[in-house]
Amino acid sequence: MTGFAVERTATAIRVGARPPRPERTALVEARGALLFWDVLDRHAHPAAEIFDARAADWLWEVYGPDTAAAILGDAESVATEWESPVLDAARDLAHLHWAGAWWPGSHAAAVPALPGGLLRAETAWRTAALDHLLDDEDAVERALAGLDLGDLPVLGTDPALAESVATLQERLTDLAETFGVELHANVRTRPEDWALAAGGEAPDLAVASGSDPIDWALVPHGLLDAAGEATWQFGQRSGAWVITVTAPAAPGAEPVPLIGLFDTVEIPLHLDRGAGAFTGEAPAPPDFAMRLRGQVRVYAPRFAVPGDSPDEDREAIIAFARDRLSAPDATLTERAAA
């Protein structure tokens, strides 16, 4: 049984509340409404914001006809025990969207990266199960267009998983034909692991150092270790004052350039695969010793502008992800990662 308060504003009917933070939010954009699940406060049924009741004619599929009628009527609270394959598909799709954005891959916390190709494939399949109620009329075509069957993992060691992946591939091939999308099937060659000589070694003589948690929202998914902290060191190298920043890389991170920001000093960071970290060094301005009370922030240029650091529920989210790997309702993608 899931219960919600219902509130009516000038622009929307609110069923329950939005999850408090983006990294907790599993979202489905349905026609006329957003559906939200909070990954840290899990319920079978989603909270919702209905902004077009006429378009949200599918609401009964998610809450059941009586609850849907009460929501669209004048009930101030509702409860439901409705079960349906559409509700299951919506919950799965929301979870896959969340995993694509926030799955906290981490060496430090032993959370493996999810296989990206399989994640996109499973997302496309779940999208297709909801084609009749999504806001984007071309959602299925869009999801299929981003797929590459060559990216599906080869899971020779686990016959049951391998069979599930093969079934998924078959279904997607048929789906692509029904929606007129040509699927790619390129075997992608991954760049070999190489170590970049990017500096980042500790200064000869460090006079100050510290570390700060990484703000997930400032970097694209899958680059930095979700449980990691960025560390900085201020010191001398060959007689010059330098600041060095290191941030641990996520499992399977791509070598995208990042920036460490300490006070107003920008330190370009590059992936050092040997060290498993993004590292870099920059000359420290003359008065830098006066500014050491700041904190280091790591961000991706042309992705986000560093603002105030929010409080994140990172430990709880990492614990949630770890549980998912062995959850009875784990997605195929999660099972393949475990």
């Binding site: 622009t11 983006p22 954005a101 992705f303």
Partner: peptide
Amino acid sequence: RLLNRWRRESYVHRVLRLPDATA
């Protein structure tokens, strides 16, 4: 309603961890 769709979109960008369009 159109302005609301537009505002909703920037919320969805944050939830989906997409680049900040202004960046």
